[in-house]
Simulated scan of single mutants.
Amino acid sequence: MKTKLYLLYGGKSVEHDVSLKTAVTVLLSIDESRFEVYPIYITRDGLWCSPGRLSKEGLTVEQLIARPSSTDAARTIGEILTGVLALPGPKVVMPLLHGPNGEDGTVQGLMELLNIPYVGNGVLSAALTLDKAMSKQVLAQADIHQTEYVVCRYEEWKRDEKAILSGVEESIGYPCYVKPASLGSSIGISRCLNRKELLAGILEAFSYDKKLVFEREVSGREIQVAVIGNERPLASLPGEFIHDHRFFDYESKYFDKQLRMSIPAELPNGLTERIRELAIRAYQAHGCEGLARVDFFLDREGDLFLNEINALPGFTNFSMYPVMWERTDGTTYAQLVEKLIDHAMDRHENKQTIRYSK
């Protein structure tokens, strides 16, 4: 019997469009002799619906979009749970939801309640990695080097704006970055050279999140590592994007045709293995399972700083994560998807041995 593979995509997130691109790529790669694919679309308002079974031939993003039967989120989720997800036979869910309301442990918690295996990180690791402020505390506890940072909540900002501005200038200085704590794809992030830009960046970031992280700029290179696995994770060869952007923002990441990947990244002797080891340490410190991309800064003096962990990295066939694996050990995109599904099944099987009564 084929395994039913449920793809969750879209979502109530500013990274909605990125998720749709990911879903198309994954759907086109699926081995239909092993899996029956059931796409589940989540609208920008958080409503769940399905476009039905789709053909790979000529598949477009537009075909993935469906119209919900109701404007009530609970009703639409219920219809999917009692209809599509309740079909008999072996099943696994693959959340392809970037950002809040999907990458942050919310959907993962629902899958845990339903006792359905799912690809990627669990509730705790998903929540920790998406929240940059919490992740930095975990990294500090694990004694992993990172750049100076300050965290600010909206209530603190409203109470004393001048104190926050002065505190950032004194402890971080310029240039600095202001970031929404729980968002990806560089959305809402600003590089600031003075107080005027800092103020504008804060107001922009607060429109996406109610908790911000300020970081000192590290001038140098950004090195990325792909990690896969559960209890015994593996790290890929490091890679980097070659580009001329001072700030690698959303437009640069997704629309710059001049971007070039360098995999493996050209690094001094010994540094490649050190970065791979640190990536696994950070992965395990956050309790990650399935997959994550770990990003580092390497400054001009050769100092290494862990930037962040992305629990659902870009995952089209042109994204850094799958390409790093292909150039590390020859794993194709389709093989990578199947490996992630196998890890999900293994984790779920292990959890079935847990006792819930005396």
Rank of each mutant, 00 (worst) to 15 (best):
Y118K: 10
Y118E: 09
Y118Q: 08
V119Q: 12
G120Y: 02
G120S: 08
G120R: 03
N121Q: 07
G122I: 09
G122T: 05
G122M: 04
V123C: 06
V123G: 05
V123N: 06
L124P: 04
L124C: 10
L124S: 13
L124G: 02
S125P: 05
A126N: 01
A127Q: 01
L128Y: 03
L128A: 01
L128W: 02
T129I: 00
T129A: 15
L130Q: 02
L130F: 04
D131P: 01
D131C: 01
K132S: 11
K132H: 11
K132M: 12
A133V: 14
A133G: 07
M134V: 06
M134R: 05
S135L: 11
S135E: 08
K136Y: 00
K136H: 00
Q137M: 08
Q137E: 09
Q137W: 00
L139W: 14
L139H: 05
A140N: 09
A140P: 02
Q141R: 13
Q141E: 10
Q141M: 14
Q141Y: 03
Q141T: 11
A142H: 03
A142P: 07
A142I: 09
A142R: 10
A142G: 11
D143Q: 13
D143S: 12
I144N: 01
H145S: 06
Q146D: 06
Q146P: 04
T147P: 14
T147N: 08
E148W: 00
E148H: 04
E148R: 12
Y149I: 03
Y149S: 15
Y149Q: 12
Y149H: 15
V150A: 10
V150D: 00
V150K: 10
V150T: 08
V151E: 05
V151I: 12
C152I: 06
R153I: 07
R153Y: 04
R153H: 11
Y154R: 13
Y154A: 11
Y154I: 13
Y154F: 14
E155H: 11
E155G: 08
E155W: 08
E156V: 10
W157M: 07
W157Q: 05
K158N: 14
K158W: 07
K158H: 10
K158Y: 04
R159T: 09
R159S: 13
D160H: 01
D160F: 09
D160C: 10
D160L: 09
E161Q: 14
E161L: 10
E161D: 07
E161I: 11
K162A: 14
A163Q: 12
A163V: 07
A163N: 07
I164V: 15
L165Y: 15
L165P: 15
L165R: 03
S166V: 12
G167D: 12
G167E: 06
G167C: 12
G167Q: 04
G167K: 08
